[in-house]
């Protein structure tokens, strides 16, 4: 099963490489990874999506917790959560394609954020499934380039991941 694990870690040099290294060292799988500072400048938040059965996920969370730089973590997929990813896509936009792209973008509530005579750059946010669907819809028109942030997530309701 796919899991989204959110990690608060010390904003120290090398911390990220320890997390990434752990995954390759122990043969765990990483589907996507995203990391950025938080409102507390001493902490960064890292979100990793991974696939594995319960035993593997248990090992992943235990080994992550063991890293000295990891302060706290949560497996978001254990409860209700919000999952978002941002994607920027360059698509071909010539003649009739220009309208087609615009229409499809509207359906997905995506925005066209940059325009040239032959190319549209579209920005879209949503869960990974929505982004995949958008790419599928655009494929016949001609996708030129894709940049995805990887999944970021947060739990629903009052539950908070903090120090």
């Amino acid at each position: 099963m796919r899991h989204i694990i959110s990690i608060l870690m010390e904003n120290e040099p090398g911390a990220l490489s320890r997390v990434v290294g752990l995954f390759s060292q122990r043969n765990f799988n990483i589907e996507s990874l995203n990391v950025a500072p938080t409102e507390d400048s001493t902490l960064s938040r890292l979100t990793v999506t991974t696939v594995g059965d319960d035993r593997v996920i248990e090992q992943i969370t235990k080994h992550l917790n063991k890293l000295i730089d990891v302060v706290k973590l949560v497996d978001l997929t254990e409860g209700n959560h919000i999952e978002r990813e941002l994607m920027l896509v360059k698509v071909k936009a010539l003649g009739a394609q220009r309208d087609e792209v615009k229409r499809t973008a509207d359906i997905f509530r995506a925005q066209i954020v940059d325009v040239t005579p032959s190319v549209y750059t579209v920005q879209i946010t949503g869960d990974a499934g929505k982004l995949d669907a958008f790419l599928q819809a655009m494929a016949p028109i001609g996708i030129l380039e894709v940049a995805r942030t990887g999944v970021s997530g947060i739990s629903r309701g009052d539950k908070i991941l903090s120090l």
Binding site: G14, G21, Q25
Partner: peptide, 14 residues
């Protein structure tokens, strides 16, 4: 050396 030893230490510092 911090990189080289990363998988074989409990922790490391620079």
């Amino acid at each position: 050396i911090v990189g080289v030893t990363r998988p074989i230490v409990k922790h490391s510092f620079s």
